[in-house]
């Protein structure tokens, strides 16, 4: 690991100033991803500003949304009474990610900003447009078992590795950002980018900006779950994951929100499936039709073709489980 200068931000203002004024400066929360990337020389900052001592509040806003400060640890968020009670799918998704040790250190903002675990991104002997723009992508014709099936490009087929973000994608999440130039709020849906021909640009975060908090709400009500399929039963990244909230009234799909993990460069909202099912009979036949429509856009590669069928079956299993739960209410 290249050496660097380290300082602790005693206020948000000092962190914003450092990011704006100093070149090649990165902020660190828990560091569980950044330190790993620095050890592999993928990230080589000259300076690091530690923001882990800034505010770590979780508070209810007047409109009922929950505001979660950027430095809140994953464990703390998963265990917060209001999250467990009102947003159980978020608690569930978080504890499906990483290990107990990592969840105790990793922050909310760090989880959102974590980078892909594509092995070619990590291997500096491989071509990777994300690591070195214009160098090519060894994953496309390489061992791409864990890679994306939605929204890929000829430049990159990497996935976003987060579990937490898949749940955030169905909770009407907003991300609050600040820089020395001002504040802005972006929809979570617009924060992560598809690779296109600029896979090194992963988010909407502008130079000098810092995530200060996120707000979660949920317009979708009903039964919810997070299902994760992986190569071993614990502590592995998702091959496919599904976060879903489903509400059924009088055998009609009253509302549905569903997002997929492990399949795209960003948390993938299944909009086509949702609009096909919303307001229509909650039958297994229609579930299958909706899934087929959603999956029409999926494209597999040599080693991950199986993900298409796996995703279909996982979604169907989740919808069936939540339907049973709704019908028993």
């Amino acid at each position: 690991m290249k050496n660097f200068k380290y300082s602790v931000a005693d206020s948000l203002d000092s962190a914003k100033t450092a990011l704006m004024e100093r070149s090649n400066c990165r902020i660190i929360g828990g560091g569980t991803n950044l330190i790993d990337l620095m050890r592999e020389n993928i990230e080589q900052p000259d300076e690091i500003v530690d923001v882990s001592r800034l505010s770590k509040q979780i508070q209810q806003l007047d409109d009922g949304a929950l505001r979660i400060d950027a430095a809140v640890k994953n464990t703390e968020l998963a265990n917060h009474p209001k999250v467990r009670e009102n947003f159980p799918v978020l608690s569930h998704a978080i504890v499906y990610g990483a290990s107990g040790q990592i969840r105790n250190v990793a922050t909310v903002a760090g989880n959102i900003m974590q980078r892909t675990r594509c092995m070619y991104f990590y291997d500096d002997a491989a071509a990777c447009n994300k690591r070195v723009p214009g160098s090519g992508c060894d994953a496309i014709n390489g061992i791409n078992r864990g890679h994306a099936i939605f929204g890929t490009s000829t430049s990159c087929i990497a996935t976003h590795p987060s579990d937490m973000c898949i749940a955030l994608r169905i909770l009407d999440t907003k991300i609050n950002l600040e820089s020395s130039k001002g504040k802005r709020t972006v929809d979570f849906a617009d924060f992560h980018r598809l690779p296109g021909d600029t896979p090194h640009l992963e988010t909407d975060l502008m130079p000098g900006e810092i995530i200060t908090s996120i707000d979660i709400a949920h317009s979708a009500r009903g039964s919810s779950t997070y299902r994760k399929i992986r190569d071993r039963s614990s502590y592995a990244f998702a091959l496919v994951s599904v976060a879903c909230i489903l509400s059924i009234k009088d055998e009609i799909v009253e509302d549905i929100a569903i997002a997929l993990g492990g399949v795209a460069h960003k948390p993938w909202r299944a909009d086509i499936l949702e609009s096909y099912l919303r307001g229509t009979p909650a039958t297994e036949g229609r579930f299958k039709e909706a899934i087929d429509r959603e999956m029409e856009a999926a494209v597999g590669f040599k080693h991950n073709e199986f993900k298409i069928e796996l995703t279909k079956r996982t979604i169907f299993s989740v919808l069936s489980e939540l339907k049973t739960e709704e019908n028993s209410k």
Binding site: Y6, G30, I35, Q101, N104, V105
Partner: peptide, 13 residues
């Protein structure tokens, strides 16, 4: 009292 991976942290933190 909280368990962490000491390899994924900077001592300075």
């Amino acid at each position: 009292g909280n368990r962490i991976n000491s390899c994924l942290t900077l001592a300075a933190q």
